[in-house]
Amino acid sequence: MPLYMDIHEVPGGVSAEDVAKAHAQDVKIEDKYGVRYHKYWVNEKAGKIFCLCHAPNAEAAAQVHREAHGMVADKLIEIQPELAEGFLGGVEVNDSGAALVPGATNEQDPGIRTVLFTDIVESTTLTQSLGDEAAMAMLGVHDTIVRDALSALGGREVKHTGDGIMASFVSTAGAVRCAIQIQRELDKHAQANPERPLKVRVGAAAGEPVEQHNDLFGSTVQLAARLCAHAQPEQILVTNAIAELCVGKGLRFEELGEVVLKGFGSPVRAHVAAWRQPS
C-alpha cells in the first residue's frame, strides 16, 4: 500500500494539544477507508503539521482528515518508504502519535532536517588515471571517512550517489561538524598519501519534509546538491539559514554572498564553513 505524507499550514501557529486531538480523531475512523495514520510531526511556532500514513490512494488519506476533523492538508505527496526512513529515521512517538526528536526524552520533532552531500572531486579523472581498482580503493576511503563522521555526529546515510553520499541530520550544527570532520580526516589522508590526495566538496541545506516539490525534502535536497556542485574542492558550502541556526555553536563561517545555482530562479545566499584549525 502506498505511503503518503501531507502538510497542513495553520496561520498564526498551532498547539501540540490540538494536533494530538485531531490525530486521535483520524485514528478513530481510518479503518473505514483502509488508511493507517502512523505518526505526525508538528512545528507549533511555524504552524505546520506533517502526517505520515499508508493509504490505498491519496483521496482515501484526504477523506479521513476531511471526515474526522475537517483539516484537509494543503499538500499530499506519495513517498518512498526507504527515503522516509533515510531522512526521518525510525522515529519514536509519544502516546499521542507525535514524532519525537531522536535521543531526546520527550521533545517533539518538528520534522526539519539538514541534508548534506559529499562529492569526490574529478572522480572520473581518478578512474582514468588510477584504474578501476585503485579508484574503487579511493572511493572506499571516502566512504569510510564519511560514514565514520555520520556515526559520530548523528547523521543518517540516505543514499550513495556513486561518487558521494547524501545524508540527513536532525541537528544542523551536527551536520556542519560532520562536514568539518570529513574534510579534516581527508586532509590527514592526503598528508599521509601525497601521491594520491582525495579531495571532496560538501554542500548542505536545511528544510521541511513537504515543500513545493513533489518529493520528500525535494527543495532541500536540490539546494544541498547544487551547493555541493558549486563548492570548490575541499570547501563546505551551506545556506544562510544553516549559518544562522549555528550562531553560538562555536562554528565559523565566511559569507560568500549570493550565488547563482542551476534550477533556482533567484540567487542563493551562501556561506563557507571553516574547517581548518586557526593558526
Rank of each mutant, 00 (worst) to 15 (best):
G70T: 15
M71I: 15
M71E: 08
V72K: 12
V72P: 05
V72H: 06
A73D: 11
D74I: 15
K75W: 14
K75F: 04
L76V: 13
L76F: 10
I77K: 00
I77V: 00
I77E: 05
I77H: 01
E78I: 13
E78T: 14
E78M: 11
I79T: 13
I79S: 10
I79D: 05
Q80A: 14
Q80K: 09
Q80C: 08
Q80N: 06
P81K: 05
P81W: 15
E82H: 12
E82C: 10
E82Q: 15
E82V: 14
L83G: 06
L83S: 05
L83Q: 10
L83P: 10
A84W: 07
E85S: 13
E85R: 09
G86S: 13
F87P: 08
F87Q: 00
L88E: 05
L88G: 04
G89K: 02
G89M: 01
G89Q: 00
G90C: 10
G90H: 03
V91H: 08
V91C: 05
V91R: 03
V91M: 12
E92A: 07
E92F: 04
V93A: 04
V93K: 00
N94F: 03
N94A: 01
D95W: 01
D95V: 14
D95R: 11
S96A: 07
S96H: 14
S96F: 05
G97C: 08
G97D: 09
A98K: 10
A99L: 04
A99N: 01
A99G: 00
A99E: 03
A99C: 06
L100H: 01
L100E: 14
V101G: 03
V101Y: 03
P102L: 05
G103Y: 15
G103E: 05
G103W: 03
G103S: 04
A104P: 15
A104D: 04
A104F: 11
T105Y: 08
T105R: 04
N106R: 11
N106A: 11
E107V: 12
E107W: 02
Q108D: 04
Q108R: 12
Q108S: 07
Q108V: 07
D109Y: 01
P110W: 07
P110R: 13
P110D: 09
P110M: 12
G111F: 13
G111V: 03
G111C: 09
G111A: 04
G111Y: 11
